[in-house]
């Protein structure tokens, strides 16, 4: 995999001025820096209102940073050219109700300078990919929330961008659909596409992401490779299949004989990212 930098955010600060209260600005993002290498899947997690969506919007040039810079493949986010190679799925996406699924994709494809046979093939291929071939000629006004989410995902991928920015891609999607989206992200990763996503479904983040950043009240509180983050250095985990109670008992006595080691727990493995998340966002609350 190339070591090109796909996303670079440096000391991003975003203040929202309130038109009513006047002077006191609200700091939504406070000095966030992150770097995503091409081919990585990066997950941004954090509680509601912690600035995840704002960070993504700044990266896409939809909001201007109060200070700091964002760039995509080395191109400044405030320039139109930076959007050549990126697809974006906003949170709670909502598209033109009067268009059908195919027309929607065609419209966004044309905005990316695709046309003719190439565009038509792409539209069919994408509808197939997000499992909406049946709803191809139905207007979006009649789509369900999960269907909208999926057409949004297809729309983001229309020009085959090298970077996908997905704001809660599985919100409102049923368990099967959300599994499909997860699988899709994995397929994309295998094809070398960089994905920057945020989600509240930590289990899924843990499954698909290589890198994770935890953002809390606008600040990046923890960041790094997922494996490093959730590994606890002085502990070792042994995961076994079909272990009999007798075997477990043997292990217990073995460990007891050892001076330096202590057995902490035995049982089913847990989602450790979830625990990390809770810990990080609670320490700071105090």
């Amino acid at each position: 995999m190339t070591s090109e930098t796909a996303v670079e955010i440096r000391d991003l600060v975003k203040d929202f001025r309130s038109p009513l209260r006047g002077v006191k600005a609200f700091r939504a993002v406070d000095g966030v820096s992150l770097r995503i290498q091409a081919g990585e899947v990066y997950g941004l997690i954090g509680p509601n209102g912690s600035g995840k969506s704002t960070t993504m919007k700044a990266l896409l040039g939809l909001v201007a940073p109060s200070s700091g810079t964002c760039s995509i493949f080395g191109k400044d986010s405030l320039k139109v050219d930076s959007r050549n190679d990126v697809g974006f799925l906003p949170e709670n996406p909502y598209f033109y109700k009067h268009l059908t699924g195919a027309e929607t994709l065609r419209f966004y494809g044309k905005l990316c300078n695709l046309r003719g046979k190439l565009l038509e093939n792409r539209v069919t291929e994408l509808l197939e990919l997000v499992d909406l071939t049946n709803a191809r000629d139905r207007r979006l006004g009649g789509y369900s929330k999960g269907m909208l989410q999926r057409i949004g995902l297809a729309q983001a991928m229309v020009q085959d961008p090298r970077l996908l920015i997905l704001d809660e891609p599985t919100a409102g999607v049923d368990p099967i659909g959300s599994r499909q989206i997860r699988d899709l992200i994995m397929t994309l990763r295998d094809r070398g596409i960089t994905v920057f996503l945020c989600s509240h479904l930590l289990e899924q983040v843990q499954e698909v992401c290589d890198h994770v950043g935890i953002i809390f009240q606008g600040k990046m509180v923890k960041e790094g490779r997922l494996d490093d983050l959730i590994a606890i250095e002085d502990q070792t985990e042994v995961v076994m299949k079909n272990a009999s109670p007798e075997l477990m008992e043997k292990i217990r006595t073995l460990v007891e004989q050892e001076e330096s080691a202590t057995l902490l727990r035995m049982g089913k493995p847990r989602t450790t990212l979830e625990r990390l998340f809770l810990r990080e966002t609670q320490i700071d609350k105090k």
Binding site: D81, F88, P90, I165
Partner: peptide, 14 residues
């Protein structure tokens, strides 16, 4: 309001 603008401006559209 519908945030359709996001999706348009997130494409290379000045």
């Amino acid at each position: 309001e519908d945030r359709t603008l996001y999706t348009i401006l997130a494409k290379p559209v000045p």
